[in-house]
Nucleic acid binder design. Structure first.
Lengths: 176, 176
DNA sequence: TCTAAATTTCTGTGAATACTGAAATAACAG
DNA sequence: CTGTTATTTCAGTATTCACAGAAATTTAGA
């Protein structure tokens, strides 16, 4: 059992709430926060005791976090148990999360929109308005996902620089 | 009751599922999809019948959508009832949604991170590791929210152009 | 001011989800 | 091979969330 400072508790609780608002299980998010804010890798029982949740719940939540790719198993010499640690580079972490969400949610949505539009265009009971709306939605998802694909290749430093440019970037790139 | 084509049904159902994955109530998302794909404004009863959900559910969901700012009340001459229509410009719609999520979730998170860091730095039981992690998280949220604030001012066309530049933008801006 | 329509509020119910604890399985040391 | 520890699976339970339907309130025309 890891003794938590008030600050750590506050952070973990908030992260859990944030999770729920973005469709991520509260415990999953809390475990992630705990591993992120803790200097060393923890084993499942330490997590169980620290957060007061069932061992099996921890097991499943850890699997979930691993499937996202933001938590990894590590081993400690002389200890049979699995230990878990979170990715620590925040930028990389959110890149990984975004990649997953793109793969799991954006890509299928784009596929569905294309499918819908194709069907709407060939259907007997024509609905030109729906076709139009679907087209626009499709084009939005196309543009943003492709944008993300480009942007994710940028090194963190380039992004930070780009941000600092602010409005100036529009002019520099020649989009008046 | 609005007769829905298969395509419309498919789109509405998918949108509902997408909603749940992003922490948005299924019915709320479905109503939004319905209003988006429908050419004219609908009254609450039409929505009730079309989606087969309770009148009260529609009422609450519509209030939620209005609080987000993506659905508006309109009136039809000679009809007392409120009619509802969705914003149709997809880019503007997502800008509005992002603004709200920033306001509701990002800004408070950033505030909490600052608070945590301040407390962690002055606490008796020093935890330099936590301070470090909180700092990095804070800086990430600062950078991304400020980035978003800049970017949301860009006209849609500029964003599309920017996307099409792809990797070239890095060179053009001089971030090698 | 009265009445009827429209809308919202509220409370109980149902469904989905999260969670626990026991049992089963796997991994390992002796 | 055997006993022990670690981990996962699974079935039942609890909690949360979504929803329906009734009741209350508001709105506006007569």
């Amino acid at each position: 059992m890891i003794p938590l400072t008030d600050v750590q508790k506050k952070f973990i609780l908030h992260w859990g709430e944030m999770g729920t608002r973005w469709g991520i299980n509260r415990t999953v998010a809390q475990i992630h926060a705990l591993l992120y804010i803790t200097p060393r890798a923890l084993n499942a029982e330490e997590i169980t005791d620290t957060l007061s949740v069932a061992r099996s719940n921890v097991s499943n939540s850890l699997r979930e976090l691993q499937s996202w790719g933001i938590v990894k198993v590590v081993h400690v010499l002389g200890d049979r148990r699995d230990h878990f640690e979170s990715m620590k580079d925040v930028w990389e972490m959110f890149r990984v999360i975004m990649d997953e969400r793109k793969r799991r949610e954006m890509d299928p949505t784009l596929a569905l929109l294309r499918e819908c539009r194709a069907e709407a265009e060939t259907a007997k009971d024509k609905d030109p308005y729906a076709v139009e709306r679907l087209k626009e939605m499709e084009s939005f998802f196309e543009t943003t996902t492709s944008w993300y694909t480009q942007l994710r290749k940028w090194p963190t430093k380039a992004i930070v620089k780009f941000v600092k440019l602010g409005d100036k970037a529009i002019k520099l790139l020649g989009f008046g």
